[in-house]
Design a protein around this nucleic acid. Sequence first.
DNA 1: AATCTCGTGGCAACCGTTTGCCATCATTTG
DNA 2: CAAATGATGGCAAACGGTTGCCACGAGATT
Lengths: 339, 339
Amino acid sequence: MQERTRPVTINDIAAATGVAASTVSRALTKPGRVSAATRERIEAAARELNYIPNTQARALTSGHTQTIAVLVSDVTNPFYFGIIRGTHQALKAAGYAQLLIDSEDSAEVETQMLHRMRQSLDGAILAASRLPERALSLLAAEIPLVTINRNVRGVQSVMIDTPNGIAQAVEHLASLGHHDLIYVSGPERSWPNEARWRAMRTAAAKHGLQVRRVGPFAGSRPSGTAAADAVVNTRATACVVFNDLLAIGMLSRLAERGVRVPGDLSIVGCDDIFGADFCHPPLTTLTAPIGQAGRVAVAMLLSRLKGPTPPDAVRRTVVLPTHLTVRESTGPAPIPAPS
Amino acid sequence: MQERTRPVTINDIAAATGVAASTVSRALTKPGRVSAATRERIEAAARELNYIPNTQARALTSGHTQTIAVLVSDVTNPFYFGIIRGTHQALKAAGYAQLLIDSEDSAEVETQMLHRMRQSLDGAILAASRLPERALSLLAAEIPLVTINRNVRGVQSVMIDTPNGIAQAVEHLASLGHHDLIYVSGPERSWPNEARWRAMRTAAAKHGLQVRRVGPFAGSRPSGTAAADAVVNTRATACVVFNDLLAIGMLSRLAERGVRVPGDLSIVGCDDIFGADFCHPPLTTLTAPIGQAGRVAVAMLLSRLKGPTPPDAVRRTVVLPTHLTVRESTGPAPIPAPS
DNA sequence: AATCTCGTGGCAACCGTTTGCCATCATTTG
DNA sequence: CAAATGATGGCAAACGGTTGCCACGAGATT
């Protein structure tokens, strides 16, 4: 029925209460700055008129947009769902909006987007950045940044301690009698991938086990085919896989080839994403506190936006623990067939 | 090294080229309005200085924020991944930013958020709105809206034609010799849920099959337990389930109870979400073009934002076809045990 | 040759809010 | 009782663009 009405502004409130616009502004944003009496009158009027502050105008002077970008390298990767959920919750609770950006696995898109939007953002959370270290530092000087699973000097970060979990996984496999392990590598330039591989080697060494690596593979389901084939060729009896997505892809291929899991081959994934518990067989995996990672990242970012960077009060890096969740994709090492 | 530099403004460019700021503005936004020569000079300077227009300031006068909100009822529901991906792609291509909002399945949050942000948005896409029809119409008057899977007079929408797919599913089950069908119902107030149930009844009637309904259940994995138990009680031989998430939940419970799928019970899901192909057994399901739905929704919204609502040139409702993807959760009806 | 057009660019107001500075008045202090 | 102090509110200038209106000059028209 009614025309699209012009939104209520502070001027309308000022007119309604007979004070200046500046007083309205202060009453609404700096509670102590005006007398309690007038503040109440103004607040009443604001409620009455159903006033909603204009974010754009606010941002223009204050420089704060109340918006945080969350960058993921691929929105369809279930690993990020948890993160997105976590950041979303925390941001919403703090009154911030979440701008979701898919960097399409491209460092260029990542920089471009961040650079172009920097005036519209108060900060950004980088889940799995593909950026080289130098570019990341540079960017961090332009806009407040928190990375997830990426450790760069001078940039706050939340690290998921998968390496430590890897040790648990290797222990688990060792106790099942496996001697010959494979690490199925993810993308070469992925930071967590390298960390996992290093952890795997040290853990294997500690238990006196042999460990090799195949790959690199993309951390996606389709790559599972090639990965599975590669692993089968090695004749190893157990493997730890870069992430669950890849592991699930492998599962399909192995079923196709008639390789029994865990009868012939035990598999450990990483992350415990959606699906890891209902694939077949359910995946033994390193459960990562993904949602928490998102929430913590937001907390770090926001605390920095509030206090003007108290040098050390803000912790630079937070490490979140992981643990091994044993399901059905791991089992005793097969008795070697007499050759 | 360098201080956080003040961003380049239109005035800087004006100063650099010796023209007025207004001319710069026009050169950059209304190409025909200035002479080619000056425009080129200005563009060169803009490139040179690495000028990035300030979105907030632009929005203030123009009223356009180049931002579209995408509302989902639960970010962690894999059904929305596809939609989010689709909208994201399309929006990015058109130079819009995507603001992701989780309505937490609450009509109240939905209205609140939309209302509060309406000044910061050019429009919104509602994937699975929980809003009553009236509220939706009202909201549509406030801010350009496109709904997905929700048909309300006067509101543009993208409909996924699952009902038609249901007919295919019933046909499939009929051909496998099933006579006694169950529809496992989703949330009561869900629009698509009702549509699916209606389609199921007419399809069953057409084939002379018996069909009942159990539920309502939440469209989530945990609800699968109760749903599975309910279905087993009915002694039906086949069921169509509101969505894949619920179906996958049922699968787990059925395995636990020793009910074989499809040996004892055939199951058809809806949506073909991530995971439907690798659960156990892989789910026969109605494949919905989810990503496309997101893209189409964006296209509809943007075309309306451009042309000032050419009454009919903009189609009001677009229907997207679905098809049945047969995997391994459906099979021949069991031979009834002699009682 | 005088006028009409049109293309081009500048001026200045405006979008809604924030904020530095000043004026006012009441209260406290010496 | 005069002066200093502090609390409170108004004025006006930003913030970075956009846009209506006007002015100027060149080419076209009569």
